[in-house]
Amino acid sequence: MPQPHRTGEGDSADIVGLISDIARALVDLPESVSVESFDEADATVIRLRVAPGDIGKVIGKQGRTARSLRTILAAASMKLKHRFSLDIVENEAQPS
């Protein structure tokens, strides 16, 4: 698929680092945090995975923590002139 406004590799890496640093500080099991990014047509999706027991920690009461993370992404999007969106996923049970 064509990517008309591809971001530099460095930009996505900075944002992945930012979200993963914050997420690791929020959860009880930082070693289970993983963050990946993939480009869609008009945005880069930042996918944050945390341990099942930590999902509440990154979403927060009434979704406020998730909203705060998205506000940070929106600010970064403005600076980098490229849209980043956040996808929060609960890690499946460990595959054997």
Binding site: I22, L26, K57, G60, K61, T65, R67, S68, L69, I72
Partner: peptide
Amino acid sequence: ELLLSLEHLAAKVLRYEH
């Protein structure tokens, strides 16, 4: 909005309750 978001996240990092 961003200032209050950072404040909220920092409070959560410190495990402060609401």
